[in-house]
Design a protein around this nucleic acid. Structure first.
Length: 675
RNA sequence: GCGCCCGUAGCUCAGUUGGAUAGAGCGGCAGGCUUCGAACCUGUAGGCCGGGGGUUCGAGUCCCUCCGGGCGCGCCA
């Protein structure tokens, strides 16, 4: 873990600048990691920034600073590079030994309670690859925040009152003429989410067949909202069963939650009514009296996105109400609140600004033993932990909803909560499409000359039943991986193969979802996702498994445990680590370069949380695994004859293994014992 | 029409708050398993970073503009 060292170096150089150049205000500057270890372990380009104000060449400034920086703990020497960089070389042993012994914990950033909301799948059909990206990003964010010590609450929003649920009820009632008992029986005897997947696409077709049929759906929606009738009972049953299938699917991916928030409870506990009063009182919404929106309560949409409003300057004339200043309907003229309204109430509640709270009941106990709570409108469990009251909120939701997410911030600002508006973060990412090849495999043919065939991808559409279900994908990956595991490990039982195969499948799919930056549309292709070679999750697991094997063999053959090796490091000549050995080169490929790279995990996590760009974590971990693979191919460990080298290498392997394991855990990937 | 995102090697993509010689995987070519597991490693070829202006000591990265592609902009969610 390297952040603490970077901070120390930063402060030492800032102090040197103040002293040497008499600058009370040092401009912000970065502490970087230079491209190769030959150039040093840390680098500071501050001389370039100071060149103008000091009217000196960067090189001269760097040289003066190299002199002026006093002895800094952990830093062996400071050099001015000819081009003006300030390069720092760490005191390797002082840096490494405590880290290898796991005596240096990651810095705990002082942070306040954070809520991450993700997954939020409509509870009316099976989960597909689009949902997969959402849940993987959300869960990885949760893990990254926890890693740095941030208290996180993970919420999964359940839209149990929406059109999609209504459609499924219409399907059972109108298309299949099912009674409640029959629905129950279907749920007990089929993969219910798959059954509903097919039914939903039938209903969509039925709805389109005759527009008057939408009245049936409207009636169902009405009954759902009012409750206390057969429709609501059937809806509640379906939602409960589907939610449980979703949770099961997510559990396969090592994804869990703290709280399920039900839209129905937001309505029944009158969250909206309460929020509405506040919004009216503050003038955030108003009753439109003319035009086509007459009779609706609307919110005026500020021009520009959230980004534009964040950058707004007072000196800029606010865009005069040009054309039609746009308005978003919050309450329809028939008095029914829109989705946005309910979301506003939910967001206020998350910040503890609503003045009302849910009641809670224990919903389930998750695989890792963590309890999963659910909101309820009934009495609730008095022993439930406190929820909500967060200082920051991440809503993980694809970029198509940017516009609506911006409204949440806007409302908070209008209501006089600028800090909460700033901390109301839309974690936006691009959607997942299907490659034409994969769509074809799913039996979806596009006419050769159609508009759709010319597009670069095929859109996932639950409405049309077009999409790759997560469970199908996991089954496919697991089968493939299990077969490979069986081939390589003849002594494994079928159960072993299945268990390890499942771990490999999760690694493959989670890594695949994380390796692209979030602004990139993923064109999902089954062939590609099934790969276990090259830049994939299984490659990463394999590197750790190899490290495990090396350390296990050291134990078996020589009776040396990892602890034994670490214990004697102090008495072991460190030529190998210091780069003083005969056959060693100063640059890459050395043990030092490997363990130094491994120490950067905390720095990478900080960067990832700052940028919400998990591809950086994926690439870092892959690069570290690659460096490690190359290292042990080049330098023997068990078969090294010189005992000092052997010890240091073994210690390095142990450290890299620990850091890789942590990095994989951040991505929700487990490491099998063997594979 | 307005807003957001994308354009980097044959293909799929990385490229840190602007910094040192533009990287990786796949595919191609040439090598490496009696040694700590070849889901691996080594070497090699392959790039006007979509085009054009600008800011800067320095631009793949920031600004403007154009081109190409995607997504939003509903009394749906």
């Amino acid at each position: 873990m390297i952040l603490s060292v970077q901070r120390r170096v930063h402060d030492a150089i800032a102090e040197a600048i103040r002293q040497r150049f008499g600058m009370p205000d040092v401009p912000p500057f970065a502490v970087e990691v230079p491209p190769t270890r030959a150039m040093g372990d840390l680098a500071v380009p501050v001389a370039f920034q100071l060149a103008r104000t000091l009217r000196k060449a960067p090189r001269a400034i760097a040289q003066e600073l190299a002199q002026a920086v006093g002895r800094t703990p952990g830093v062996a020497r400071v050099e001015a590079a000819p081009n003006g960089y300030l390069n720092l070389y760490l005191d390797r042993l002082a840096f490494l030994v405590p880290r290898i012994r796991q005596q240096v914990q990651p810095d705990r950033a002082p942070t306040e309670k954070t809520i991450v909301e993700h997954t939020a799948i409509n509870p009316n059909k099976a989960a597909h690859v689009g949902h997969l990206r959402n849940a993987t990003l959300g869960d990885t964010l949760v893990r990254a925040l926890r890693f740095r010590g941030t208290p996180v609450e993970t919420q999964n929003y359940i839209d149990d009152m929406g059109v999609q649920v209504a459609d499924i009820i219409v399907g059972f009632r109108e298309l299949e003429r099912r009674t409640m008992d029959e629905v129950r029986q279907i749920a007990d005897s089929t993969r219910f989410d798959y059954y509903c997947w097919d039914l939903y696409s039938k209903v969509s077709g039925w709805n389109e067949g005759d527009k008057s049929r939408l009245a049936v759906r409207a009636a169902v929606l009405h009954d759902l909202e009012h409750g206390g009738n057969d429709t609501a009972a059937m809806g509640a049953f379906i939602v409960d069963r589907i939610v449980r299938t979703h949770l099961k699917t997510m559990a396969r991916l090592n994804i869990g939650y703290d709280l399920l928030t039900y839209e129905g409870d937001i309505l029944r506990l009158h969250f909206w009514t309460h929020a509405f009063e506040t919004l009216k009182a503050q003038g955030a919404v108003f009753l439109q009296t003319e035009g086509k929106l007459a009779g609706c309560w609307v919110m005026r949409i500020e021009d520009g996105s959230a980004k534009a409003s964040a950058e707004r300057r007072d000196d800029v004339e606010p865009a005069t109400d040009d054309d039609e200043s746009r308005e978003k309907v919050i309450v329809r003229s028939n008095g029914v609140v829109t989705y946005v309204g309910k979301d506003l109430a939910n967001q206020f509640w998350k910040f503890g600004l609503l003045g009302l709270d849910f009641r809670y009941r224990l919903f389930a106990t998750q695989a890792d033993g963590r309890p999963l709570w659910s909101t309820t409108s009934d009495d609730g469990d008095p022993g439930a932990p406190p929820f909500g009251h967060a200082a920051r909120i991440f809503n993980v939701i694809d970029s198509r909803q940017m516009y609506l997410q911006a409204l949440l911030s806007q409302a908070l600002r209008t209501l006089g909560h600028p800090t909460e508006a700033e901390n109301s973060i839309h974690f936006s990412y691009e959607m997942v499409g299907l490659s034409h090849a994969t769509a074809r495999e799913l039996g979806y043919e596009t006419a050769a000359e159609s508009e759709e065939a010319k597009k670069p991808f095929v859109e996932v559409a639950g409405r049309k039943g077009l999409g790759v279900k997560i469970d199908d994908l996991l089954d496919l990956l697991t089968a493939k991986a299990s077969a490979e595991v069986a081939r390589r490990n003849p002594e494994f039982t079928p159960g072993d193969c299945e268990r390890v195969g499942a771990q490999i499948a999760v690694a493959a799919i989670r890594y695949f979802m994380l390796k692209y930056s979030r602004g990139k549309l993923i064109v999902f292709d089954i062939e590609e996702a099934l790969s276990f070679e090259g830049e994939t999750g299984p490659y990463l697991q394999y590197a750790v498994v190899r490290a495990n094997n090396i350390l296990n063999k050291l134990q078996e053959r020589e009776g040396l445990s990892e602890a034994d090796v670490l214990a004697v490091l102090d008495q072991t000549p460190a030529d190998e680590m210091l780069g003083q050995g005969d056959s060693l080169e100063p640059g890459e490929d050395t043990l030092w370069a490997l363990v130094f790279e491994a120490s950067r995990l905390d720095e990478v996590v900080e960067q990832v949380v700052r940028s919400l760009e998990f591809s950086a974590l994926a690439k870092y971990t892959f690069g570290l695994a690659q460096t490690f693979n190359a290292f042990y191919h080049r330098y023997p460990i068990l078969n090294e004859e010189r005992v000092d080298r052997k010890r240091w290498r073994a210690a390095g392997v142990a450290y890299v293994r620990a850091q890789l394991t942590r990095a994989l855990d951040l991505m929700g990937i487990e490491v099998p014992g063997r594979m």
